[in-house]
Design a protein around this nucleic acid. Structure first.
Lengths: 199, 199
DNA sequence: CCTATTCTAGAGCGGACGTTTTAGAACGCC
DNA sequence: GGCGTTCTAAAACGTCCGCTCTAGAATAGG
């Protein structure tokens, strides 16, 4: 052991994530990151290896603290139908409130097509989200709160697709009625054929 | 009048569009564009003014030749319900076949949030697409091929959202079953409550 | 206290960026 | 046939890129 680090890993990673989130990977320079993190480039390289490695770390941390946390929270505390509704409503609310959008979606378009390593991570996380929707739909079809007729896999696929679409629209056409209308209709698709459902 | 241009505007704009489409705006350098267009940077600047102006031109041309052409073709030749179905199926097929995705969607995430001028163009074109879906849904509800209950505006909003989402997923998780499943379900939402419909 | 190790600071690496300048070649018009 | 204009070609502008090097400050163990 020798001299200790002068900065807090959590704080500087938060700052780096915010930069990538706001500006994208390519448009964020190492000097930009350094300034936001309060670090000189050399310290940044000493601590995290490279811009690419730092991005991978930020993305992973982001997904743990946003997507996975949300999935775990909703699945533990809500009925399946309500979990889906809450998820979609949270996406709409966040999309309208936070101009940065979603780092996962931003990266899915900017980084994934040209970076196999990050691309694999992103595809896997999208798969986790699809799996969450699928579990919710299956459980909802079992308890009668979701229409039994449509295939659960396809409903999960459409829900995932809708989340992606909402995130894109929010960044270029951030109109509340647009996002809310789309979310309302995709949720309507879950309704069982008769208004009544088991209590 | 003096010396004539040695290149064909259409051909070089096609080449430039392909570069922006494939790599995005920021990741495409002027030298890159020049090489693809067979032009030295000075000629490019002489002919098109700047990288930004060239991009705006390419985006406009792209939208005329892809989105607007498709809308006009479908609206002229198909019943409203079939027009929507054909549009969605074409999006899925193209997304799976062309790794470049959609220049409009790519730009909606990469360029629009940081470029007010391009952002305005993109928001307007997304509005045109939403309006197309809205016209189709209204006409389909009139002729009985689309369920009358859901609000046409919301259906149009969800269709637009789904197109955006399909384009995003195709670039990071290009699985045919995923895209086809999502498209199938959003089209199922259009079905009138009883399988029979007027003919 | 001394040494070994790890940190920070800042200058600097070669190269690429968007753009402009300079030089000269090709054409319409008087 | 020269003139004026517009083209092409290539070098060069200053700036920023991701990254590394050198120097010195700080700390733990012997």
């Amino acid at each position: 052991m020798a001299r200790a680090r002068e900065f807090d890993d959590d704080a500087v990673l938060d700052a780096a994530t915010d930069r990538f989130w706001r500006q994208g990977y390519a448009a964020t320079s190492v000097r930009d990151l350094g300034a936001a993190m309060g670090l000189v480039p050399a310290s940044l390289y000493n601590a995290f290896g490279s811009k690419h490695a730092l991005f991978a770390l930020c993305l992973d941390r982001y997904l743990d603290r946003n997507m996975r946390e949300r999935i775990a929270r909703l699945e533990a505390r809500q009925t399946p139908r309500v979990a889906i509704e809450t998820f979609m409503n949270e996406i709409v609310a966040r999309s309208l409130a936070d101009p940065r959008g979603c780092l996962l979606v931003n990266s899915a378009l900017e980084v994934a097509p040209h970076d196999a390593e990050i691309g694999t991570v992103i595809a896997a996380r999208l798969g986790e989200l699809e799996a969450f929707f699928h579990r919710c739909v299956l459980a909802g079809q079992r308890d009668g709160s979701i229409a039994a007729a449509p295939p659960a896999r396809d409903l999960a696929r459409l829900l995932l697709t809708t989340v992606m679409g909402l995130r894109v629209l929010a960044r270029s056409k951030p109109e509340p009625v647009l996002l809310r209308g789309a979310a309302r209709q995709v949720l309507a698709l879950l309704d069982p054929p008769f208004a009544e459902q088991s209590t």
